[in-house]
Design a protein around this nucleic acid. Sequence first.
DNA 1: GTTGACCTTCCAATGTTGGCAAGGTTTACA
DNA 2: TGTAAACCTTGCCAACATTGGAAGGTCAAC
Lengths: 133, 133
Amino acid sequence: MMNIGKAAAASGVSAKMIRYYESIGLLPAARRTDSGYRFYTDEDVHVLRFIRRARDLGFAVADIGELLALWRDQGRASADVKRIALGHVAALERKIAELQGMVDTLRMLAAHCHGDARPDCPILTDLDAGGGR
Amino acid sequence: MMNIGKAAAASGVSAKMIRYYESIGLLPAARRTDSGYRFYTDEDVHVLRFIRRARDLGFAVADIGELLALWRDQGRASADVKRIALGHVAALERKIAELQGMVDTLRMLAAHCHGDARPDCPILTDLDAGGGR
DNA sequence: GTTGACCTTCCAATGTTGGCAAGGTTTACA
DNA sequence: TGTAAACCTTGCCAACATTGGAAGGTCAAC
């Protein structure tokens, strides 16, 4: 039995975000004291840490909802969990490839830029010309 | 002399975004016809393509403002441009490393998950335990 | 009993893009 | 000339996750 500040400190999820997750339905409405304060159990903190960890792994809130449902379902098939995880891996890798493409282009352009007081710069020239696309 | 739709098609920046860039001050207010329509010149389209290319390279709008100022400044030092570009590369690489860390963790967890009809799954177990952190 | 630390709800902003609505303008065609 | 389609205008809402603040109620310690 603890209030939202304690639960936040114990789980690593801010009080602000706990209320937000409740508002969007990721978490069930917390029980309240007579005066209206939310209160949480150790079990609730456990769930919050699950969410925190999943966020750290880059899962979107919608994905976490699915994972939470599977987590709670003792009869789940591990294939369902694996599918979500690998789908997320694929999305992450697409993003990485996209960013890496940007890095490669910029590094190439920067390599040809004097980087001194002279004004001519292939980086600007490329932006100017649209990169030949 | 063309209206916003033409400028959008010619530059690859949507009319919506052109208005947005104007609203946040990245672009100066466009000239208007008597009836209030914005109109653009080939030079304006040139600027829009510059912006489009920079966005494709992942520069934030704030960065693009700086790049645009340098682009317009005939006396700029190429070092200034290179600094911005390499700063952006560093930020991109930090992001890539972060995503790659997620991928590595998830791949490792998924590798130990049967992925069949059985319920036990190390992915959920890890989320549960907080990954040992 | 007062002070400070906590809690509550509501509103706003971040950054970039898309969508929709209601209304005015221009263009093309019959 | 009339009209319909295609364009333009502004403004508001939506997304994503998170943070901040304001105004006000509650709890604990001293």
